[in-house]
Structure formats: structure tokens, C-alpha cells
Amino acid sequence: MSERTRSLGSRWLGIGLATVLSVVTLGLGVTGRLTLYISPESVWFACAAAVVTLIGAIWSCTLPLGAEEGHDHGHEHAESGRLGTTATVAGGVIASGVVVAALVLPPASLSVELAMSRAGESTALFAGADDVTLGKADTSTFGVGDWASVFATATNTASYDGTTVTLTGFITPGKDGVDLTRLVITHCVIDAQPANVPVTIDAGEYKTGQWVKVTGTVKADADGALHVDPTTVEAIDEPGDPYEY
């Protein structure tokens, strides 16, 4: 491989890929779709980092091609250079494929897929767990994730009996019927955890993955287990922001 070709490959793997990913990040941020991958609190940081990267990429274009590489031409260095070239080509193919996928594939949520693959994991997600366990928390702003924590950890479940709720999520199979599910993320979809709330709905009425808006009442069974008894269930399209945080 010629020195010029190697230099071009190195520049593409470094500045080239970083520039493309930065442009994609800014595009997703401007259109509001970056929250399909990271939490809203992290959007500003990701966009700022993308801007800094683009500034660095523009500056790097003022350097002569190959200036970022060393020029030791010893025998041992030549041998390691051949190994490095092989690694560079392999890495370039993989990294370029990722970038092309980011450009070609439309942004999409991973809600249903992740929830089903992580079924059975803990749903005690609410930060105020002590309030939920020891008393009755303020539920006025609760989403599916918060209610999943209540259902999983509250000891005084009778205090929640009769509470009116309006929740949005998608249908998944539950232990004893149907669950209303939502993915809760802290930073990005990599750390997403499914939150499940049992709802009294006919298992055959809605297919798995169907998004619904449920209005109803929290009910406590004789054994203290909680579920949502719906008064209305409305099938809806996936919301623009499918996650809870």
C-alpha cells in the first residue's frame, strides 16, 4: 500500500468518520430525534461535542497529508507497519459500515425489542423508593416506570387502591395476562430497562407491541398485589419520544 493511500485511509478513519458522525448527531439533534438514542439531558453535550469535532476536522484539513504520522522506516517498524495496515483496513471496513448504516437507516426506537429481550429484569426504577415502600408517594406525575416501582416495592399497597391513572405504553405479555410496558433510560438506550405494569385487558385484544393510552384505577387484590383496572384503552401510534427518564 502506498504512503499516500495509507495516509488517506488514516485520515478517513480519524477525521473522516468523526466528521460524518458529528454531522449525523447534529442533524438528529436539530430534528429532535437524538432522544431516540440518548436522554434529553445529554443532547446538549452530544451536540456541543459534535461542533468541537467539526472545528477540529476543519483545522486538520490545513495540515499536509500524512503529517499526523511518524516517519521511522526501520525494518522492525516496517513489519509493524504492515500489521498496522491490516488492522487499519479491517477497522476501516467495520467503522465505515457503521457510519453508512447511520446515514442510510432511519432513526427508530428500540422499545419493543429491548423490552422483550430484557423481560424479567427488575422494574423497581423509581428514585424515591423509601416513600413508595414506607408510605404513599405523590403519584400526580407518575409514569409507567414510577408505577412499576410502586407495584414492585410498596408494602402499604392499600394506600394506592383507588388512585386514578393515565398511562401510555405498549402491550407485552405479563405473568398473569397483559402488561403495559415502557423503557426507562438513564443516559442512552444501552442502559434502558423495561418497566411493566399489569393491566386488566383481554390478552387477545391487542397485539404485542401495540401502543395504547390507558385511563383507569389502581386496584389492590386480596393478597395486596396491585394492577390497573382500565376504564378506557385507546390504541395510539408510537409517541415521538417513546422513553421515560
Rank of each mutant, 00 (worst) to 15 (best):
G143K: 03
V89R: 03
G81E: 12
I94Y: 05
T123Y: 08
R82S: 08
A124E: 12
A115L: 12
E121K: 07
A95M: 14
V99L: 03
A102P: 03
S80P: 00
A115Y: 01
S80V: 10
A78H: 09
F142D: 10
A78M: 04
A127G: 14
K136D: 11
F142R: 06
A124P: 07
S96F: 01
T86N: 05
A137L: 10
S109M: 04
A90M: 08
V93G: 03
G84E: 02
V98Y: 07
A115D: 11
A87D: 08
V104Q: 08
A90H: 02
L83P: 08
A124F: 05
A78S: 12
L103Y: 02
G120C: 09
S122T: 15
V112E: 09
A137H: 06
G128P: 10
G92F: 00
S117I: 02
A129S: 15
E113I: 11
S109N: 05
P106F: 01
T141E: 14
S122M: 11
G81C: 09
T123L: 10
I94N: 01
A87T: 13
G84N: 11
A101D: 04
H77K: 08
R82N: 07
T123C: 15
V99R: 04
K136T: 14
L105K: 01
G81H: 13
T139I: 05
A90E: 00
D131M: 12
L125F: 13
T88D: 04
D130C: 09
P107S: 01
D130W: 08
A78D: 11
